[in-house]
Nucleic acid binder design. Structure first.
Lengths: 223, 223
DNA sequence: CAATATTGGAGAGTAGTACTATCTAATTGA
DNA sequence: TCAATTAGATAGTACTACTCTCCAATATTG
């Protein structure tokens, strides 16, 4: 298929496709002459993935490209491939400023939690830094988070992550599997956040709105 | 305190504070003369909240301002205040294009899930739209999410949301409580996402890495 | 009281992101 | 043959989040 058909089938303007080509987000089509190239199903799938990533999460293109580059990296086993794609997409641009008050302490709390949970994760993971950053930020706001809260969060995260991995098909071709894993991580992140907000609204209704808030009634068991 | 002290104590450059003042993110200080104003603890707290929001989540300032405006809105009960602050901060700029394939269907699935869970949430919530969008996007990528997966996500979201609400102090002044709620929603979102990634890494290790020594991949045949 | 510093307010400038538009020359389809 | 399409390159646009410079009015210090 030529570029105009790729555009029509993906809903992305030709000018934008050319821009993605220039920026290396999309591999070049196969040139049939000096002013013609053809694109295949891979290009269409890749283009849809790009749009999903930029529309649902609003990640900068540079992160999308980093994740895509990781996916295309040959010569890694699935676990490392998954890890490097996540690393690329979710790494934070602004480096960990290991300078200030409480940041170090927050890192230690994050490490302690991970140790307690017994999760086998690499050091220097961007996710770990982000966890520490969130803890440190809550400290700085004067509202430190308790260990019990972190444990609840970790338990919820684990439930979701098990489910994420469960729906990965080990029979699928490697590249598709990793593409899918990245898509699930990124777009289902939005779903999870939306559900959290919805659940907060429900909980808030039960607490502040439903019946009189002030008296300390025992926790309702409706589950 | 004067602007330079506010800058020193918050770590935010004076020029940036002035910019926030101009943009209405920070209320003006009390003017003591035509070229002097003083700022109080409220300003410092607000400034720290702004920085936490823009640094941890990378929300655009317009969203931060919308959330802040909602917080400052007098004459709402706590539940509605919480709701409008969340609405303001988490609403998506790009309107729901109710046009295309499967979007309507995704909305129905989201509604059905919420009905099944019995959550009392408003219609027209941005979170609901985002949930539908995520479902529709997975469909479009050719990897639709199952109802069982959505239920797991919902259960996890509920656990976290209960915990979020639990740590809200009903005795606290209303404004501080809402500020805190927004901070928890926004910065602990990052913590939850980081933990999900870490849990995915652990699950991936157990699944793809754990029982295989250096040499073998379960199956590889391409190239 | 004079010299120096700081401040509020306004405006312009900057760097980065994600496109979008225009142009040229080659090539294709009718 | 000749309008339409295309690759590739360059330039322009709109937006965001600052950052810088300037001014006149104060405030602080010697």
């Amino acid at each position: 298929m030529r570029i105009s058909e790729l555009s029509r089938r993906s809903g992305v303007p030709v000018a934008t496709i050319k821009y993605y080509l220039r920026e290396g987000l999309l591999p070049k089509g196969e040139a049939t002459s000096s002013t013609q190239a053809t694109y295949g199903a891979t290009h269409l799938r890749r283009l849809r993935l790009i749009r999903a990533l930029v529309e649902v999460t609003d990640a900068p293109l540079v992160k999308v490209r980093a994740a895509l580059d990781a996916i295309d990296d040959r010569g890694m086993d699935v676990h490392d491939l998954l890890g490097s794609a996540q690393h690329a997409f979710f790494a934070d641009a602004k480096a960990a400023k290991a300078d200030d008050t409480g940041e170090r302490e927050a890192e230690e709390r994050a490490a302690a939690l991970l140790a307690e949970l017994g999760w086998s994760v690499t050091d220097h993971s961007p996710a770990r830094d982000q966890l520490a950053r969130a803890i440190a930020t809550m400290d700085r706001l004067g509202r430190p988070v308790g260990d019990d809260m972190l444990r609840v969060y970790a338990a919820a995260a684990r439930m979701v992550a098990e489910e994420d991995l469960r729906c990965l098909d080990p029979e699928a071709p490697r590249e598709e599997m990793v593409e899918y894993a990245v898509a699930v991580s990124a777009v289902m992140e939005r779903a999870l956040m939306a559900l959290r907000l919805l659940a907060q609204e429900d909980a808030s209704a039960r607490r502040f709105d439903g019946d009189r808030p002030a008296e300390g009634r025992p926790r309702r068991m409706d589950d």
